[in-house]
């Protein structure tokens, strides 16, 4: 594959969606910087992408909860990438989150605090340069809180709102901010769950959509991977709260 002189920063490289996304960019000739919590696992993904595509790939270790390291880390990624994608997420267990503050806090910090602060830092650097694309992976679970997963959903709602604000702030600064809502995806996170096939995407499908919207020919700011989610979530959002609160979704 011919290098095209552009670079992707992929945070959450050992997740199924992260890996698939990095591969799509690498196949398109991008240089790739992979970031994940455990070095040896990130290195495994880096070796895989290098072998498959011949792209230039670097591996970095960073915990998304370790916000004190963020600025130092970003100074090691040089030059500044053209696009940054953060796919970090942790579903957690709702029932456990209701019992244990620690667990609930971990879910909130992993899905909201870490990704939002990291993308915020990157956005400011992109704005100073005057170009760049920020991609955050949020969730349909953040569109409306449901009894079955509202701790995760609330964190994702926070991320959605953060990205919305970032987009608004930077709309004239040459920086694009995208919010991707994948819907159900067949990954480690959803392993063993019964998922409706029409609503469920493969990681590669999410990856291709991310690339198409962020760096391909498709436009968009807030994007559901499968189009069926647009009407579905419009309906779910429009149900009046007195009725919604009695539903078991």
């Amino acid at each position: 594959m011919k290098a095209i002189g552009k670079a992707l920063l992929l945070i959450g490289a050992t997740s199924d969606i992260g890996r698939a996304t990095a591969l799509v960019y690498a196949e398109a000739g991008w240089d790739i910087h992979l970031v994940g919590r455990r070095r040896e696992l990130v290195q495994r993904e880096a070796d895989d992408i290098v072998t498959r595509t011949g792209a230039a790939v670097t591996a970095h270790e960073l915990d998304i909860l370790d916000i004190d390291r963020f600025e130092a880390f970003l100074s090691t990624v040089s030059p500044l990438p053209d696009t940054a994608v953060c796919v970090v997420g942790e579903l957690g267990e709702q029932a456990r989150a209701e019992r244990e503050l620690e667990h609930a806090a971990m879910v909130m910090r992993t899905n909201f605090e870490g990704p939002a602060l990291m993308l915020g830092l990157l956005a400011s650097r992109f704005a100073a340069r005057g170009s760049g694309t920020i991609v955050g992976i949020s969730s349909v679970a953040g569109d409306r809180g449901r009894g079955s997963n509202y701790v995760y959903g609330a964190a994702k709602a926070g991320l959605t709102a953060f990205l919305s604000g970032l987009r608004n702030r930077l709309s004239t600064a040459g920086v694009r901010v995208l919010t991707i809502k994948p819907g159900f995806v067949r990954t480690r996170m959803t392993d063993g769950m019964k998922l409706p096939p029409v609503l469920t995407a493969a990681p590669a499908e999410v990856a291709q959509r991310i690339f198409a919207v962020a760096d391909g020919s498709k436009g968009g700011d807030v994007v559901y991977v499968r189009r069926i989610w647009y009407p579905l979530m419009a309906i779910i959002r429009s149900i009046p709260e007195p009725i919604f609160k009695r539903l078991r979704l």
Partner: peptide
């Protein structure tokens, strides 16, 4: 399912 390395000299692939 990860590929490990490709040695172009010998066309040798490790997976």
């Amino acid at each position: 399912s990860r590929m490990k390395s490709f040695d172009e000299m010998n066309a040798s692939l490790t997976v």
